[in-house]
Amino acid sequence: MRRLLRSRFFIIALVIVVILTLAVASSKEGSGIKAIGNVISVPIAPLQSVISFMAERIGGVFDYFKDVKITKAENEELLHRINELEKENRELERLERENKELRDALNFMDQMESFEPVGCTIIAKDPGNWFEVFTINRGSKDGIEINSPVITAYGLVGRVSEVNLFTSKVVSIIDMDSTVAARVSSSRDVLIVRGDASLRSSGLCRMDYISPDVDIMPGDVIETSGLGGIYPKGIIIGQVKDVIRNEGQFDSYAVISPVVDFKRLEEVIVLKEKP
């Protein structure tokens, strides 16, 4: 036995078995074993806050000089667009009235009353190149729970996927592990919006399984349907950017441009369910 314990191959095999067991045990979302993440997340959370804050400020200085150059060119373009926008504005005012009526009809406000908004700051972005997960500065001590919806003033961001003591992880809607029950605002067709690994880097996601009878076109607004039990009904997800129609019955899909700019996201609101 002692000889076996001294064997290098036995030790390596043992470590591999332990790691694989850990991988299997932690593969389920909300698994208790992920609490070992506190060993890293608790000590680095304050450092992440400070460095994120400093990096944003330093980035802001560089952005200022870049912006002056860009502003000049933009100014000319914007003058041309003012006329266009005034026309659009009148159209938007009409849509706003219509939107308000629809929201009232959907009883959106009543639903939101069952949630308590918790303002959070993003302290760390996803460390790798595969997922779209970020860390916020609120955790279980602030009453954050797994699957709480996360939004901004513009629309849906994602949901809480992991809660540590002082921090939480949020899976955004453009992450490949994210699926949102959604619907087309105009036609009320219910579909699924999910993240896609190849669209993630462009800040886009996709809407799958579009049958030929679904009435959808570029520019349509997509919102949560309320089905699935995680997201409340009526939160804006984004706009249809492109519809790709294929021959198969459920092969068609749409590329969705979320209303939230995930590259520049700094503050979010977690919707905590009221007791």
């Binding site: 470590v15 591999i16 790691i19 694989l20 850990l22 991988a23 045990a25 932690s26 593969s27 074993i33 992920k34 070992i36 993440g37 060993v39 890293i40 997340s41 760390a124 996803d126 460390p127 790798g128 595969w130 997922f131 997960v133 860390t135 996927s161 992991e162 992880k169 899976v171 592990d177």
Partner: peptide, 24 residues
């Protein structure tokens, strides 16, 4: 293994894959 596990923890997904790969 420790650096890999740290990467796994930071990603907030399944723990262990980066730990195993960096260990080997």
């Amino acid at each position: 293994a420790v650096l890999g596990l740290t990467m796994d923890i930071l990603m907030g997904k399944t723990l262990g894959w980066y730990a195993l790969l960096l260990f080997l």
